[in-house]
Design a protein around this nucleic acid. Structure first.
Lengths: 157, 157
DNA sequence: AACATTTCGTTAGCTTAGCTAACTAATAAT
DNA sequence: ATTATTAGTTAGCTAAGCTAACGAAATGTT
């Protein structure tokens, strides 16, 4: 994508840094996007599965909200995961409109391995970095997450 | 998406850092995704336009490579940009197979405004950070870009 | 000079992910 | 009892990504 020079101006500006961070994120995800051949799961599916696994059984709507996606979109993602035997739909006992998405055993193990594998390529590259650079990345991730949380808060408000 | 707990392990491991960086990137882009109703340009289009603007006239293949995308994909992105009057296709004088993609005046200005707007929300948050954190993010972006370039190289091989 | 090969971009056709709008079924409210 | 709201799905669209196959142009071989 844009690379070094978008919004060139003064490179130390927050705007310039925002631009570069944005770029880097796009590039990274492009690289990691391709389906993990081992699991056959795309990023959105793996991501949804991840929430199902770690946040326990969730309603479809809640899952959609967690993934910041509309219900129909999540409905299809769940279709795919269900087809693969990774999650199950359960009707709620008390409120029959609700559908709880629960990860299966298979879903749990596939998710773990899939995510590990997905990130493995990145990890392998990181291993080649100078330790100081690795530290910088770790710190940046933490900072970014807090920034993103702020963004999300201001948006949903 | 996945959040804090995927592959938790030792947080200082390159694998753990890879996971956190990956997470952070996903979260960030989800937040920024809708950003640019003003230009009507999607992220991939804005990104391609950005390269066309800043890396000067480029062949379609080079643009595809820069965007880490296959030629047919870029061909369609360029179609859309051309329809919007943001870029032009020019046949090369000496080698008639080549097509140079050149940003128009309109493309340049739209890109600047669009991208600025897209990143503006992020930039606004960054402004609230401690200067040291801002520096860390800037460095991290640079490091990440080189890492991603390596990833791309190894994958294409 | 003629033919074969390679290269560049496009076209065709597929999948996935996202959306809105409209529908069904179920619950809640009046 | 009827009406309104809510949850999820279906239908139908757009966009982005891919591979395979193709035409046109350039290059290499004989």
């Amino acid at each position: 994508m844009t690379g070094k020079s978008a919004i060139p101006n003064n490179p130390s500006t927050h705007l310039a840094i925002a631009d570069r961070v944005h770029s880097a994120a796009i590039h990274l995800l492009r690289q990691l996007r391709r389906a993990d051949d081992a699991t056959g799961l795309s990023a959105p599916r793996l991501s949804a599965l991840s929430v199902a696994v770690f946040a326990g059984p969730l309603t479809l709507g809640a899952l959609a909200a967690a993934e910041q996606v509309r219900p129909p979109t999540m409905s299809r993602l769940v279709d795919a995961l269900e087809r693969g035997g990774l999650v199950e739909r359960e009707r709620d006992e008390v409120d029959a409109r609700l559908i709880r998405i629960r990860a299966t055993k298979k879903g749990v193990s596939v998710m773990r391995r899939g995510r590990a594998r997905r990130v493995a390529r990145l990890a392998a590259q990181l291993k080649l970095l100078q330790p100081a650079h690795l530290v910088t990345l770790g710190q940046a991730a933490a900072i970014l997450d807090s920034v993103v949380a702020e963004l999300a808060a201001h948006r949903t408000q």
